[in-house]
Design a protein around this nucleic acid. Structure first.
Lengths: 332, 332
DNA sequence: CTGAAAGCGCTTACAG
DNA sequence: CTGAAAGCGCTTACAG
């Protein structure tokens, strides 16, 4: 038996209006009427349809989230942070994942809009004109995470500064030959910005940088292993750098595996640094020097900005950079 | 300017009925009329309101998911598996997390119902009468993961058998003194079942089991460390077991930390096993022997069962056990 | 092949 | 303090 506000009204012998009022604590209801309604609701276990309510109020209390990948630590931490603040404000998350298929970003933007979400957070890994246009036209509270997208609110890391600081740290410790394992420049943040931070610092200190010391990889451990192999070149013939900066922890761990496998010692023979402060980075031996981008905070901040947009009805563009923390551990 | 089916109808000079028909590919529409409607839709970027549609059709294409915790590897992997199949069938996930607050399980059950989700998947860590009653009354397609709940469809691991097999493996290798780090019995699966599997096997082989060799811990690494310390007792005085079975990888890693810190060697002095096949278990040194419960498959299977319930309209109770795989690595 | 009309389950001016 | 009625944006018999 499907319960509706109408049935409850009949059972409590009041109008639907009155039931609605006790449901929402709005307007005047006599204590007597309220008690009768409450009694019926308790007895029946009636739960009002958010569906119907939303159709009238234009609020679903649902936030759409678009992730590049569901089961990475970064994603989890970001979603976790967002969820904390959304939950507190009575919002829930409708989750989608593109699995790195960039077409789907646009597809999901539309899907979420059709689901009438109150706002959208996109965890971006790239930007392209189509996507940007779609976002600008979405006409919904919106926040991007991870990439700087012109015209919309963004919460980002200072990837450039982080890479720079990491490189400076190594140079400060006396390392004069440093390699680099990055990812594709199409990822503006992790790929391009971190690489520039590294390169600019190397140049500033006028250090030697052999061509094969700079490698581009995918996001997985194997790829880091492979990239390190390439840096090694013909081992024993071409010179190895004394340190290697990797743009993610997984890449660093892959690189470490190769280095250990070849019988070199970390950090005596060669140092390795990662970025991301994944849980693994702490457990690996030696513990990995890395950068904590504080993903939970990113998620929280994005959530706050989105709620602000939702509540104020204005789409003020706001750019926010989350601080990072350098975690110096045994790998250097 | 808010676009509705009415406006589209006016612009295309047809009725709303016709617009609806081209939107849903239902009923007859002349090619001519269809073209006009399609043209208007493209020109305006109209996206129909799922909200309103759902109110009529009683289908939201949204699945509610209740997680004990958002950012654990197990959760991610399960959600990832579910999402694969839901996505393929046009469903999306509305995510909630109890953060291990058991009250919230019931709260979210109701919340999700009020949001008119088409079905619910609960990743359960405990069972209690209140919860069971709520589930039985929810009157919505429902699947539980991880715990065997009477009266509803469940996808579970054979926790008992897994613990048994792990213990048998150790005994088969000649270990005669084995300790155990578990969690609270209130978690029927991870706590109770795995412990019983261990205890029964020990008893079957009539091995000695000192009281302090059995410890109960929380779910984190620190807790595993602490439990191992207790197993050690007054180190050097009371005897250490030759191996210790831990019910999660994190506990095992904590235990390993303590063991290494005290100068013992793994596995020469003492062996350690985990469960869960977390990514860390592979990276840690020595690589951890563990059990892969194939969380993605669990998620997928649960999703399939839920979809079956949704499509068949019958709430046939079905119990399903996912196979596990023993991963023998260097820690034993 | 097409459209007028009822209805999904709520909320909210409005009138009393 | 209370209720009748309109309306949110769709879909779906039903009649033509």
């Amino acid at each position: 038996m499907k319960l509706t506000i109408k049935k409850i009204a009949e059972m409590a012998e009041v109008s639907r209006t009155t039931v609605s009022r006790v449901l929402n604590d709005s307007g005047y209801v006599s204590g007597e009427a309220r008690d009768r309604v409450l009694a019926v609701i308790n007895a029946t276990g009636y739960v009002p349809s958010q569906q119907a309510k939303s159709l009238r109020t234009k609020k679903t209390k649902i936030i759409g989230v678009i992730l590049p990948k569901l089961s990475t630590e970064t994603s989890s931490r970001i979603v976790n942070g967002m969820n904390d603040v959304f939950q507190e404000h009575g919002y829930n998350i409708l989750l989608t994942s593109t699995n790195l298929d960039f077409q789907k970003e646009i597809e999901y933007l539309r899907l979420l809009k059709s689901k009438q979400v109150d706002g959208i957070i996109l965890v971006a890994t790239n930007i392209n004109p189509n996507l940007t246009e779609e976002i600008l036209n979405i006409d919904l509270p919106f926040v991007a995470i991870g990439q700087e997208i012109p015209g919309v609110s963004c919460v980002t890391n200072n990837d450039y500064a982080a890479a720079k600081e990491m490189t400076e740290l190594l140079i400060g410790k006396g390392y004069e030959s440093i390699g680099f394992i990055g990812v594709s420049d199409s990822d503006r943040a992790v790929g391009y910005a971190r690489k520039q931070g590294f390169l600019d610092t190397i140049e500033k200190h006028q250090l030697v940088l052999r061509e094969e010391w700079i490698q581009s990889a995918q996001f997985d451990i194997e790829s880091g292993y492979e990239a390190m192999r390439k840096i090694g070149g013909e081992l024993g013939v071409s010179p190895l750098p004394r340190a290697v900066v990797c743009v993610t922890d997984r890449l660093a761990i892959g690189a470490m595996q190769y280095i250990k496998e070849k019988g070199f010692h970390i950090p005596t023979d060669i140092s390795v640094t990662g970025m991301g402060a994944s849980e693994i980075s702490r457990m690996v031996l030696p513990a990995l020097t890395t950068i904590d981008f504080e993903n939970e905070k990113i998620g929280q901040q994005a959530a706050y900005f989105l709620l602000e947009q939702i509540n104020s009805n204005k789409t003020e563009e706001i750019k926010w950079e989350i601080n990072y923390r350098l975690l110096v551990r045994d790998s250097i």
